[in-house]
Design a protein around this nucleic acid. Sequence first.
DNA 1: TTCCCATATGGGAGCGCTCCCAAATCGCTC
DNA 2: GAGCGATTTGGGAGCGCTCCCATATGGGAA
Lengths: 345, 345
Amino acid sequence: MPVTERGRALVKISDVARHAGVSPSTVSYVLSGKRTISEDTRRRVQESIDALGYTPHAGARALASNRSNVLALMLPLRPGIHVPVVMQFAASVVTTARAHEHDVLLLTQEEGADGLRRVAGSALADALIVMDVQLHDDRIPQLRTLDRPSVLIGFPAEPDGLTCVDLDFRAAGALCVEHLAALGHRCVDLVGSPPEVYERETGFAQRVAEGFREAGAAHGVTSVIHPCEATPEAARRTAERLLALHPELTAIVVHNEPIVAPLVAAFRDLGLRVPEDLSVVALCPDEIAERAPMPLTSVAIPAEELGSRAVQLLMAKLDGRPVPDATLLPPRLTVRSSSAVRRPA
Amino acid sequence: MPVTERGRALVKISDVARHAGVSPSTVSYVLSGKRTISEDTRRRVQESIDALGYTPHAGARALASNRSNVLALMLPLRPGIHVPVVMQFAASVVTTARAHEHDVLLLTQEEGADGLRRVAGSALADALIVMDVQLHDDRIPQLRTLDRPSVLIGFPAEPDGLTCVDLDFRAAGALCVEHLAALGHRCVDLVGSPPEVYERETGFAQRVAEGFREAGAAHGVTSVIHPCEATPEAARRTAERLLALHPELTAIVVHNEPIVAPLVAAFRDLGLRVPEDLSVVALCPDEIAERAPMPLTSVAIPAEELGSRAVQLLMAKLDGRPVPDATLLPPRLTVRSSSAVRRPA
DNA sequence: TTCCCATATGGGAGCGCTCCCAAATCGCTC
DNA sequence: GAGCGATTTGGGAGCGCTCCCATATGGGAA
């Protein structure tokens, strides 16, 4: 019984119905659970499904039900974005989607607004997840016109009416200060992103700075913010400047992924021991924090949770349940060996 | 004109037909190019498509044509696999697929054989790409029963009848030796994977070793293979042992990702300068080679090409064109600063 | 003019499923 | 024992597209 023509040999719902001695609609209802079926019938149908190895035709289903059970996921595959974080996020989205009977279609950032239109317009996907959202993202107007629900990872400049999820960067900035304050530190500096980042791009840098500043004020901690270019040389200069400005400095927070390791190295070269003389808390992916010259206490992007929350929100929207516009995930701080109780000089 | 019911407001082919004053079948043929259409008609139809913003319904298309224009891509999202390589591969698959009018459905390794059956059985995907294939992979029997074409990344123990793509590891092993031989080295050791890898798993370790050995013989280079556990301590011990065994050693090849950096560090600690005293060639992803204590001359997995070749092979199979069972991509060696001409002692 | 072939388009069945609209069956009550 | 609600199932139109089977039109040869 070789199959000559690829595909047209699939078991169909009418085959199952005949095998079980019921009508196709009954098989359909057994599958969807949209009406009550007697226990006896349900069992017979299920046995036939198993016996014949029936799998419903996705296209036919999508056509008839107006639901494809597919989510589109648009990922940044460009360099610069920290890859393991993206991957972890993607894995979480796929796993969570599968738990809700959905599959995931992968789109690249390059497809842009047109890609979103195509996938939504063709009814290939029921809903969309868009990662790496910029402040003025040209995909956002498109998302607004689409009649499909979507969730953004990150916050654009005008998030009204959009469903957005992200780490609560303000709380993250505050959490770093609180951790250090609890260890007795009274003077903490933030080494941040390059100056231009504080004006444009995604806006999270400002929020970290705000949380940092507020928590500093609340805990009586002297807290100064230093933007810094993302080069090892700039890191070294910043380290020198910080020590010159604040001889009493005992702790820093770093929010600038590329220079986490160089900055720590620079302070060590200047004769400071970490954590004995200087505590360091980084805001960066775990991979970086773990691999720096030493394991660093850090706050990471909760990629896993971000992914599953995004899917859960989409499922709620698809079911017509109300969802909050903004979801801010609480930061979690992992204590490693770069932060310690402040030692009196 | 607010859309009340999500989805059922899409422009359909009959709308386009009416707008252009032709029949739906003509619109379909304009889109598919499966029969000649007069230039005048084609233009009118195209204008109507643009004017109405028509996008064919993917499900309807899949149902009628028995083609979903979707490829399933099963990726290993488990740790251990080098993430940037997987990501690069995925990006390449998506980009190439899009160039062939296909989309990509993302599956995780955990879905396993059942996931492949589901996606093929539901006609969600026309074809499958399976990455990270093990020697005795339980997805392979499933792939054989499926009536959809597939491409494997990697070679299982019994690849007959399957289409497989991978780096030519034998050639890669040889290329490393040839590079070093050309630089005048006459004694080269291979620091390989842990011993157990040489027995089970994916078989590529053996092939590297074979190419290494053969090229050594062909170029009159003394070449010894040392399996090595993937820990920094083991790397250090191996470095010491190599120097003890071969005082005349002037070059090594490393094929064991986690210990690339530790091994180089170990040799330096033992007083050898790289590349003055010892040339090093690594077989590892570029990310690792670039970030080791120094930029290392290396041979990488050509993830980008692997992805596009896999898609091209699938397209050929879908079109009924014949394809080779095995595709071995030629290795490419990137010269960095860890390999140099052998200096006479 | 007539016939034929080439070129260009239309009509509509059917892909496999869902879900609306019955219809059938079975106690119960009155 | 006729009527009625409750429970369970069947029938089949229709989702939007593709592609087989015509049909229409035009020009050239006989």
